[in-house]
Structure formats: C-alpha cells, structure tokens
C-alpha cells in the first residue's frame, strides 16, 4: 500500500528554503496532487525543481549576495574541514583517519551551511550546496587530467563520497538548522 503522506523531508526543505510567497501556494498544490495519486518520486522531483529555480532566481536577482554567501560558506566550511581533517590525519592516521574524515567533513559543511543561512536568505543555502557540487566536479576533472600523485583506492572512495554526497548534505543540514532556528518553525505533519 502506497504511503498517503508526502515525503516529510521534501516538504521541510520547501518550507524552510524557499520564500513564503512561493511556498504558501506551492506546497499545498504538491500535497493536493500527491493525495490525488502522484508518486513520492514525482513529489521529490517537483521539490528539487522548486529549490533549484528559487536558488537560481535568488542568485540572478541578488548576484552580490550570492557571491558573498558562497565565499563565506566556502571559507568557513573548507577551513574547518582542512583543520579538523589535518588533525585527524596527524594524530590518528591510517584508514581510521579516512573514516573520521566523513563526519568531520559533514560537520564542517554544516557549519558553512549554517553560516550562509544566518547571514543570507534561505535560498542561498541551496545555491551554496550546488556550488559545492560543481566545485567538486571541477576539482575531480582537474585531478583526472593532471594527477599529482596516485591516491589509494580507499582515499579516493572517501573523497568522492565526501565531495558529492556528504558535504552537500552537510550544507543543507546546517542551512536547515539555521533557517529553522531563525523562524522557530517546526515541521507540520500532514
């Protein structure tokens, strides 16, 4: 039997990351369509499109804010990530350090996302998350074209997981926490 409630996380992302002017009608429409038979996959697809459109519109209309949001988020997240993972590599070492990189990377990215959500509009969090993915893709392409040294397979898997999954998720988590804390909103069960 198909669940009757739409995806809770998708709805929470919409409530916290897109402007109230849009979310007021859009979320209700998505819920209505879901209750009329649309799938959860469709709901997620619509959610991602809404977040992306909102983020790019925000970045297009407020270019300077988008740039400052990305710079602030990247400097805070990347520097914290570098500092903590360097400590882990120095004092722990070996494959255990690789395992520690994942939660440290997530927390560092969350700090970056939180900083962006508290200092800029909520849509900038998604802009920053997209930037992180694009930056990782560019870095990966550069490394594949000009490999400096051969990374161990385990390290390669950790880096790819960090760059394309863990850190963007961390940015969104930190951004959601900052936005929820600001608005004092709690997710409404549907």
């Amino acid at each position: 039997m198909k669940p009757t409630d739409p995806p809770a996380l998708a709805t929470a992302l919409l409530e916290l990351l897109i402007p109230p002017r849009t979310s007021a009608g859009l979320i209700g429409d998505l819920v209505e369509e879901h209750k009329n038979g649309r799938s959860r996959a469709w709901y997620w697809q619509q959610t991602i499109m809404a977040l992306t459109l909102s983020a790019f519109r925000e970045a297009r209309e407020r270019k300077f804010h988008a740039i400052t949001a990305i710079v602030l988020g990247y400097l805070s997240g990347a520097s914290l990530c570098y500092f903590t993972t360097s400590l882990a590599g120095r004092f722990v070492g070996g494959y255990t350090a690789y395992v520690l990189f994942i939660p440290l990377g997530f927390l560092s990215a969350a700090v970056g996302g939180w900083m962006v959500s508290r200092s800029h509009s909520r849509a900038m969090v998604f802009v920053f998350a997209i930037f992180c993915i694009i930056a990782s893709a560019v870095a990966l392409a550069v490394y594949m074209l000009f490999p400096i040294d051969r990374m161990p397979l385990a390290m390669t898997v950790v880096v790819l997981t960090l760059d394309f999954i863990i850190m963007p998720a961390g940015v969104l988590a930190g951004g959601l926490f900052g936005a929820a804390h600001e608005s004092h909103s709690t997710y409404r069960s549907i």
Binding site: P6, A24, G25, I27, G28, D29, V31, E32, K35, R188, I190
Partner: peptide, 15 residues
C-alpha cells in the same frame, strides 16, 4: 489572493 485552507492540501490555502 490566498483562499481557504483545506484538509486535502494539508491545511494549506490555495493561492
């Protein structure tokens, strides 16, 4: 303008 909220829409109003 915002209309009335309905249970079908999870308690959210139509615009």
């Amino acid at each position: 303008r915002l209309g009335e909220s309905t249970a079908q829409r999870g308690g959210r109003a139509k615009r």
